[in-house]
């Protein structure tokens, strides 16, 4: 059974923030995972990362207790309409900006699933940075994009 970070969640913009100061913080917004069958070998996570600190944030990865491996990926489309995924070693979010991880583009790929959370659940996922403490949030499992 998965440990749940939050027992309930209302709304799609639920997050945890780790403050660098009263008015300068980084936070995760609109965090969600696409619901997939229980036998799925992987699932994708999406979010908006807001960097209201005065320093660029370098996102390097993520971790979740229900996935044995996580990677930052980007789905690209070439000139002939072919989709491909590429591994992102890190992603920089400039100070004062935000960056979206959304379907068909940048996404968090969770693999080697120990268990697959179901729609409606809100498991905890932590984002890791080169220059910031982990940001952990409740990612709502949904069938569709919020």
């Amino acid at each position: 059974m998965l440990k749940r970070f939050f027992s309930a969640m209302s709304g799609v913009a639920l997050l945890v923030t780790v403050s660098a100061g009263a008015f300068a913080e980084a936070r995760i917004e609109q965090a969600w995972l696409r619901a997939v069958p229980p036998v799925s070998p992987s699932m994708a996570g999406y979010f908006v990362l807001v960097n209201d600190t005065d320093q660029p944030l370098v996102l390097t990865g993520a971790n979740a207790d229900f996935a044995g491996m996580t990677m930052l990926h980007d789905t690209g489309t070439d000139g002939e309409g072919r989709r491909s995924m590429s591994h992102l070693k890190d992603v920089t979010i400039p100070a004062g900006e935000s960056l979206a991880f959304a379907p068909g583009g940048r996404h968090l790929m969770l693999m080697k699933m120990k268990s697959v959370p179901e729609a409606g659940e809100t498991p905890k996922v932590c984002l890791a940075f080169q220059n910031h403490a982990d940001l952990c949030g409740a990612f709502q499992v949904r069938h569709n994009e919020p």
Binding site: R34, S42, M43, R83, M85, P103
Partner: peptide, 13 residues
Amino acid sequence: YTHCPDICPAVLA
């Protein structure tokens, strides 16, 4: 393919 986490589950849905 089912190991595809982003596009394929979205299309299936």
